[in-house]
């Protein structure tokens, strides 16, 4: 194959609660159709993240306990992840992964747990309430509609340089107040959509792959890859 992409499945052995693996499977599936060889590797606790070794980072959602452990460990990867993001690296971050890319989130017992602040959002906590149910949003730039399932107690507020992944048409989104859901910053896509967001909305998977290909192969002709058909399972 002419092109290859390497995926870092960040804390893939701990942040995997809601079918998050589906995102890796769908990236592989679409990459194959684009003629791209895609490999993935778990980078977890006590391991270094080398931004030069990867083109895409997938960072899933996990349970409170696992996430609190990761909040400490990820501080060692803060610089490398931030420079990867600033340099245009592609990231898909879900639920806990989304929260940890921001400044902080409030844990299950009310404690403030630090993120890496690579993106400018922060996450507070609803009192004794969760947003649970189906969500539909619209990407205001492309007009694409995405559908998914949300289940979160955290309420996230976007910061500088971030725009939402979409405007909430149904469901709650980031905080139930400003009709935003998820975040886009450079080539980073964040969302509260559970686990397999890319499986149910493979348009996003296609954007992620094309962004990564353009960054890695700036002069390549990607017209074939751009033609790969996608459509949501809506």
């Amino acid at each position: 194959m002419a092109y290859s992409l390497r995926v870092c499945h960040l804390y893939g052995d701990l942040m995997n609660t809601y079918g998050d693996l589906g995102n890796i499977l769908v990236l592989k599936y679409l990459a194959r159709q684009m003629g791209v060889d895609l490999t993935s590797e778990v980078v977890s606790l006590d391991q270094e993240f080398d931004p030069d070794q990867f083109d895409i980072v997938v960072f899933g959602g996990g349970q409170d306990f696992e996430q609190s452990i990761i909040s400490k460990d990820i501080q060692h990867k803060k610089q490398a992840l931030t420079s990867f993001i600033e340099d245009g690296g592609s990231v898909v971050a879900i639920c806990g992964g989304y929260q940890l890319l921001g400044h902080y989130y409030i844990g299950a017992n009310g404690e403030k747990l630090m993120g890496i602040g690579a993106l400018d959002h922060h996450t507070d906590k609803q009192k004794d309430h969760r947003f649970i149910g189906n969500v539909v949003i619209q990407n205001e730039e492309t007009g694409e509609k995405y559908h998914g399932f949300e289940n979160h107690q955290g309420i996230t507020f976007l910061g500088k340089g971030e725009r939402p992944l979409g405007k909430v048409l149904e469901g709650h989104g980031n905080n139930g107040q400003d009709h935003t859901e998820g975040a886009i910053y450079k080539n980073v896509y964040c969302t509260y959509f559970h686990g397999p967001i890319l499986a149910r909305n493979n348009q996003i998977a296609k954007h992620v792959l094309l962004n990564a290909l353009r960054r890695k192969y700036p002069d390549a002709d990607l017209s074939q890859a751009e033609k790969v058909p996608v459509g949501s399972t809506f």
Binding site: G12, D13, N16, L21, V42, S44, L45, Q63, I69
Partner: peptide, 18 residues
């Protein structure tokens, strides 16, 4: 051996390593 990446509940209850 280690469990596959998609397995739940693999943190050591005492020291929180895999």
């Amino acid at each position: 051996i280690k469990a596959t990446p998609n397995t739940d509940g693999v943190l050591c209850p005492q020291c929180q390593h895999i």
